[in-house]
Computed example of a mutant assay.
Amino acid sequence: MQRSTATLKRDVANKLLRQIAAELGLDEQAVILNCMGIRAAESPARSKKQRLAIDMRTSANSRMVLTWHPIFEVTDREVWQEIATHGLEYHPVYDALIPRLSCVFCVLAPFDVLVRAARLCWALGLPLPARYRDLEAKIGHRFKQSHSLAQVYAEAERLEREEGPLVWNRGDAVRQHLGAGAADDYLARVALAA
């Protein structure tokens, strides 16, 4: 579960921090500030982290690494307000109302987000939902204790029958977080910048 974060983010950053300290060739311990853009609102586990802490795993005789989360207390609404106010680009998956850009079927995602992710895959012509469902059946292990990918798939199919294919528009994420007026202002701002 935590492996993707460790392998793709933290381990890569730690390797770079060790390299930087070695290249400095200092006679005394280097102090390195590692800034990471995580927020407490992203998950219960992240909310328990400290805004500033010594990274004991990466620190050594030649380096003391401090990990700082400068946007730790920023709320979802504040993030979207910054995006809207400054006409900033964001990944289009947010407009499909997927709250976090992560693995398609993230074990940390709630059921409704997994269902939406399956529908998003179908809208984009990706065969991932069936592959994951079939793999789960083949290995005989549920995706999560609370629900299987087969259940996610079935619910996504039900919604597709009732609502039709998933559709989304540019600005839907801003609309969801800040309202229609903010989305209209955002889209106008982006159009002017283009």
Score class of each variant (00 low, 15 high):
residue 38 I to E: 01
residue 38 I to K: 06
residue 38 I to A: 12
residue 38 I to Y: 05
residue 39 R to Q: 04
residue 39 R to A: 06
residue 40 A to R: 08
residue 40 A to P: 01
residue 41 A to E: 15
residue 44 P to A: 09
residue 46 R to T: 02
residue 46 R to V: 05
residue 48 K to T: 09
residue 48 K to F: 08
residue 48 K to Y: 09
residue 49 K to S: 14
residue 49 K to Y: 14
residue 51 R to F: 11
residue 51 R to L: 12
residue 52 L to G: 01
residue 52 L to I: 15
residue 55 D to K: 07
residue 56 M to N: 08
residue 56 M to V: 14
residue 57 R to H: 13
residue 57 R to S: 10
residue 58 T to V: 09
residue 58 T to Y: 10
residue 58 T to F: 05
residue 61 N to V: 12
residue 61 N to R: 15
residue 61 N to A: 15
residue 62 S to F: 13
residue 62 S to H: 13
residue 62 S to N: 14
residue 63 R to M: 05
residue 64 M to A: 12
residue 65 V to W: 00
residue 67 T to Y: 04
residue 68 W to R: 15
residue 69 H to L: 07
residue 71 I to L: 11
residue 72 F to H: 05
residue 72 F to C: 04
residue 74 V to I: 14
residue 76 D to G: 07
residue 76 D to A: 08
residue 77 R to A: 07
residue 77 R to N: 04
residue 78 E to T: 05
residue 79 V to E: 04
residue 79 V to S: 06
residue 79 V to I: 14
residue 79 V to Y: 11
residue 80 W to Q: 07
residue 81 Q to G: 09
residue 81 Q to S: 14
residue 83 I to L: 08
residue 83 I to K: 02
residue 84 A to L: 00
residue 84 A to Q: 00
residue 85 T to S: 15
residue 86 H to T: 07
residue 86 H to E: 12
residue 86 H to M: 11
residue 87 G to V: 04
residue 88 L to F: 05
residue 89 E to T: 15
residue 92 P to Q: 07
residue 93 V to Q: 03
residue 94 Y to D: 00
residue 94 Y to P: 00
residue 98 I to G: 00
residue 100 R to V: 15
residue 101 L to D: 11
residue 101 L to W: 02
residue 103 C to W: 09
residue 104 V to D: 06
residue 106 C to F: 07
residue 107 V to E: 10
residue 107 V to F: 10
residue 108 L to Q: 13
residue 109 A to K: 00
residue 110 P to L: 09
residue 111 F to R: 14
residue 112 D to L: 03
residue 113 V to G: 02
residue 115 V to I: 05
residue 115 V to Y: 00
residue 115 V to T: 03
residue 116 R to M: 01
residue 117 A to T: 02
residue 119 R to Q: 02
residue 119 R to F: 00
residue 121 C to K: 01
residue 121 C to Y: 05
residue 123 A to P: 04
residue 124 L to T: 03
residue 126 L to K: 11
residue 126 L to F: 13
residue 128 L to R: 06
residue 128 L to F: 14
residue 131 R to K: 14
residue 132 Y to C: 09
residue 133 R to G: 15
residue 134 D to L: 06
residue 134 D to E: 12
residue 135 L to I: 03
residue 136 E to L: 04
residue 136 E to M: 02
residue 138 K to S: 12
residue 138 K to W: 14
residue 140 G to P: 04
residue 140 G to I: 10
residue 142 R to K: 12
residue 143 F to K: 03
residue 143 F to C: 01
residue 146 S to I: 13
residue 147 H to F: 14
residue 149 L to F: 04
residue 149 L to S: 08
residue 150 A to M: 07
residue 150 A to L: 06
residue 151 Q to G: 07
residue 152 V to L: 03
residue 154 A to F: 09
residue 154 A to S: 06
residue 155 E to H: 12
residue 156 A to E: 00
residue 158 R to F: 06
residue 158 R to L: 06
residue 159 L to E: 07
residue 159 L to Y: 02
residue 160 E to N: 15
residue 161 R to V: 06
residue 162 E to N: 12
residue 162 E to Y: 10
residue 163 E to Y: 05
residue 163 E to K: 12
residue 164 G to V: 01
residue 166 L to H: 02
residue 168 W to C: 10
residue 171 G to R: 08
residue 171 G to F: 08
residue 172 D to T: 01
residue 172 D to G: 00
residue 173 A to R: 05
residue 174 V to F: 00
residue 174 V to D: 04
residue 175 R to T: 10
residue 175 R to L: 05
residue 175 R to I: 03
residue 175 R to W: 02
residue 176 Q to N: 13
residue 177 H to G: 01
residue 177 H to V: 11
